[in-house]
Design a protein around this nucleic acid. Structure first.
Lengths: 361, 361
DNA sequence: CTGAAAGCGCTAACAA
DNA sequence: TTGTTAGCGCTTTCAG
């Protein structure tokens, strides 16, 4: 073993009576080796208990990987902006492993923009595609193209179970919904709940929070069977109108003291909550975007149900990268994250705890 | 940049007009470089945006590090056993970076055993010591010896602020206490609270949960000023006696419906809670050890205030290792973890989400 | 199909 | 205090 505490490719080569290159060929199934030679090499590997040194492999390798991240475009501070942080951190982490990421954005209200982005990805021939579920139909056809091009793909946040993705990273939205209903109602006699929804573009074929709402409703059926739920819709980009809507809604339903927003924008209720304080009121929202953390901090919203969104993106990138590097067969890997409960007394250190903490060097 | 997309040590050396070895010396603070040269090198580094390639560094380096982990001994399933998992995972993560860990245990009821363990550590001359605070006096004198031997040290879980440690990883116990009181009382009119404490060895000079209790009491002063708190002590290793004690306690104080255990063993209440169900009762405990997760799952305990204990240990190991490897000057690095709220509806995936998920290669 | 050899970027021992 | 250089273990190209 040339004085080492572990066998090197050189030791194997010598024992097998071949060159190092040949050993490399059999180790990585690169082909082009006669069966007889391969057998000799394999025997030597077994005898020496040889394990390739990934550090050395990494250094010597010239391979480069590109991960295409196909996600909705975003504005500062919104959900996908929060995700973006995680993508960036993931990118930084995998950089020294010679994988880079490239973002592709589309407008989640405009199916055409999604199709366009898909075309662009296909044209760029990345090593893998990391994406989310927005337009299901279009997504399926895109995945079809990817499979034809033999490009592996992974999901973050949402997935379609029946597809052959490599990695998924996210939380179970149904469970998050269930938990939200628990937090909104337990220890109280709740008879009425108001659910505030967003007016999405009429053409929008996506309903990203359907499962959350279903989980929410299911909890109510299980534990508060005679609780009535009333919905109202607000226009996400018109603060004045939001305020008016909510004022009208609460005037129409004076008994509703419990509110939930199943999307990531509970902060849109801020003005209303500030202007109409009510000690009996309780509000539950979702997702750890900055503005949401702020309304919790200000005691306007009682609970936020979430997971570390940037970490979720980070995990997705890192794990997908790891799959690409190792060239493993595309077996599904699901990483379900834990659902966190955030209240005004455990807000500290939530968003500061970035994954970088974990990276050596 | 010699045709690369990133600067190498060679590029830096050339720009600074020095040899590669010199660049290496300044990057790793190895000393033996004149200030003038160092300045030139630093300028070149900045100009090129040079980042050392950890993969190459790893491959070339012959250094070995040993981290001594000095912790209380444990029994299966208890708090320090849970920590141990994290230490092991941390060890696995840093292994390929040529750092190994070695455990040293002592009995937290027997100061002498602690002194002995300290002596052993000192004799073994590790590259660094990772530890916890149990016997404060003895710890201070141990730290003194470490400083004389120029061995850096780090804390996990608890720390002493005034010492010159390198890394600390844990949560703020006071805040965890505060949060626990919130969870136990909010949305309710609570007039009486029972706090269940452990009979620790009389010689035991440690009171590990003092700060937690203080935070807890502080919340009550802030928000439930006329709530009365009554304590009782149970013997941790005598289930029958625990049951009797608790039965007697609740007989003596029939109005107490709210209980808290500030230590990690709320599961000791299990038998009592099972035998005397009471829909009005609420119990809050601390720490994510398996048996505690089980009593939450069974709805015997309503909330657990915790952090990912194994992750905490993992972070401590990895970060400390990172400091040792990089040979950075011993500047304090505090990693405050987020305080998690666990209820029966968000228990899933809490302990399964191990840090290994994040490791490439 | 197989061997030889030039690196990958950095460390560390030695020489100056 | 600084420069030089031989590797670390593997990949990959180029000859044979």
């Amino acid at each position: 073993m040339s004085g080492k505490d572990h066998a090197t490719i050189f030791d194997v080569a010598r024992l097998a009576g071949v060159a190092r290159g040949t050993v490399d060929r059999v180790v990585y199934h690169r082909g082009g080796v006669s069966e007889k030679t391969a057998a000799k090499v394999k025997a030597a590997i077994r005898e020496l208990g040889y394990k390739a040194n990934p550090v050395a492999a990494q250094l010597a390798s010239k391979r480069k990987f590109t991960i295409a991240c196909l996600t909705p475009s975003y504005e500062k501070g919104d959900y996908w902006d929060t995700m973006q942080k995680g993508f960036n951190e993931g990118a930084a982490a995998v950089k020294s492993h010679s994988v880079s990421i490239r973002m592709y954005h589309f407008d989640s209200d405009i199916p055409e923009s999604y199709l366009e982005a898909c075309q662009q990805v296909l044209k760029d021939k990345p090593s893998g595609v990391l994406m989310n579920v927005v337009f299901e139909e279009a997504l399926r056809s895109f995945v079809h193209s990817l499979e034809e091009a033999r490009i592996p793909y992974a999901f973050v946040d949402r997935k379609l179970d029946d597809l052959d993705y490599t990695v998924y990273c996210g939380v179970d939205p149904w469970e998050a919904g269930y938990l939200g209903a628990y937090l909104l109602t337990h220890r109280m006699q709740v008879k009425e709940i108001g659910i505030i929804r967003l007016q999405r573009d009429p053409r929008g074929q996506s309903d990203p929070n359907k499962l959350r709402r279903e989980g929410f409703m299911r909890y109510l059926r299980d534990y508060c069977p005679d609780c009535r739920v009333t919905a109202t819709f607000i226009p996400p980009h018109d603060p004045e109108q939001i305020l008016k809507n909510l004022e009208q809604f609460t005037k129409d339903h004076p008994d509703i003291k419990h509110f939930v927003m199943a999307n990531s924008r509970v902060h849109l209720m801020r003005d209303f909550l500030l202007l109409h304080p009510d000690p009996q009121r309780s509000v539950v929202g979702y997702d750890d975007i900055e503005r949401n953390l702020a309304v919790v901090k200000d005691s306007l919203v009682e609970y936020l149900v979430t997971r570390r969104t940037p970490l979720q993106a980070y995990y997705a990138v890192v794990n997908f990268a790891s799959c690409l590097i190792s060239g493993q067969p595309p077996k599904k890997r699901n990483y379900y994250m834990h659902v966190d409960i955030l209240s005004r007394f455990n807000l500290k250190d939530y968003d500061t705890q970035s994954p970088e903490t974990v990276n050596l060097l």
